[in-house]
Write a protein that binds this DNA or RNA. Structure first.
Lengths: 250, 250
DNA sequence: CGCTCAGTTGAAGCATTTCAATTCTTGTGG
DNA sequence: CCACAAGAATTGAAATGCTTCAACTGAGCG
């Protein structure tokens, strides 16, 4: 059941506040014009809203403008795996728009604002705006890299390494889009969500987080997360900090 | 170190023997002409050859024409995670061609034949052959779906479910490209490879496979794998057999 | 025949899960 | 401002699944 409710009005993509983040590559006027043409509207949702659902063909693609969301798959008996978190600037629903139906669901963690594109116009985009088509493929490739790294975590890192990796990953991504202030982020997920992302039980996730904070690698205060020494955490996590971070925004 | 050695000669993509497999969508004459133009040559390798390497920018993209390969990532201490196996028709190296350098390595399991495209012409393809650009993006999306499912396996399936899932996954993909004869496939990997794909130890992988064959779900004879009751295995694995299987071939 | 690599096995140890309470937070109504 | 409810976090203990260690067996090959 889709719990999101649509809300649309005129928007100018060229004035999209997200574009002021320096992680996003500047777009040409032509590209901005194409993006504006394709944009169908905006969607504003509350927290815990299902934006896209596994098994359902989606008519829409989204760019998340504001808020947090997560992608997940479930087994019949209720076991859930969160495959990735989505932050502002992330593209949602490409997989479903290519293959006909979604292979995973997407749910918001916070109130969110999404920019929507009709699925039917994706082909038009490939014909008329090759640079944007390229950007979409680029974003897919980046997402694939994140999934590969996540797979390495679940398969070969132990609980401490895995949690260290994932927290740092989210911290850096949050920083990219300006969500880190004075070294602190407000992570909007519960330990339950984190457990489902790490492939661990809730209890063990809790104990693992405790170990990280006892070692002084991660500090928590009133729901804010602070990482005093990024390099030290990266070391434990076997995290490669040298990855390029700039990317296109659609 | 790249251990593959190049071998090139004229080829006509329209006569590519792989195209006779019905899983591959027919290409138009225009598309075939574009593919032929982009094709730089063929690469023939032995088994255990490194085709692409993590951290290295790749000048080439490949379509695997013959043989098996696998994609993997490693940690410094030698732990390895196989993220996927590649079968004939699979595209290799898109991620690296988009992001500049490979985030994973690719190694062959058998002697292999690969068709190569220069990375520099990918942009040309997006401009001149939008339908092929779309196909590339489509294949990326399909690959993303496989990674999502794999993530669900590593995070939330137990060893038996995970192995059942993965064997069935490989069996069906092999069947798609004509590698299954009388219900049997020759899997070219060792239990070591399988362990690294499932995120399990070698010993536990062995015991898990034994359990599956004791239950009669999978039969092994002289390196050939036979699945007597696909539906029964799918049931254990929580595998959705209703997925569409046809796809483009570049 | 003997080497090597892959597969197999049992036993001990450890990591992670499960179960079952508690405690802490936050928001709400009195 | 306090009391209370509901969700989230925390904790200890017992049970389980998986890993590690250390042999041993079997198949293919020169």
């Amino acid at each position: 059941m889709l719990t999101a409710t649509p809300f649309s009005y005129e928007v100018q993509c060229s004035r999209c506040p997200l574009r002021t983040c320096e992680v996003f590559q500047p777009a040409t006027d032509d590209e901005l014009a194409s993006i504006s043409t394709l944009k169908a509207g905006e969607l504003r949702t509350g927290p815990a809203s299902t934006v896209l659902q596994e098994g359902i063909p989606s008519d829409q693609l989204f760019t998340l403008l504001e808020g947090w969301a997560f992608r997940y798959k479930s087994l019949d008996d209720g076991r859930r795996q969160i495959t990735s978190f989505a932050l502002p600037g992330d593209f949602l629903g490409i997989q479903g728009s290519m293959q006909g139906e979604m292979d995973h669901s997407v749910e918001t963690l916070t109130p969110a604002v999404l920019c929507s594109f009709p699925r039917k116009r994706v082909w038009e985009l490939f014909q008329k705006a090759p640079s944007l088509a390229f950007d979409i493929t680029w974003l897919s490739a980046r997402h694939e890299s994140m999934l590969n790294e996540h797979l390495l975590s679940l398969g070969r890192r132990n609980a401490v390494e895995c949690a260290a990796y994932y927290l740092l990953h989210l911290y850096l991504r949050a920083d990219d889009v300006g969500l880190v202030t004075e070294g602190k982020v407000r992570f909007p997920f519960t330990q339950d969500h984190l457990a489902d992302a790490l492939g661990l039980s809730l209890v063990h996730t809790n104990k693992t987080l405790k170990r990280l904070s006892e070692r002084g690698l991660v500090q928590w205060e009133h729901g804010w997360c602070f990482i005093p020494d990024v390099a030290a955490l990266a070391d434990i996590a076997k995290f490669d900090l040298e990855q390029p971070r700039t990317r296109p925004l659609l």
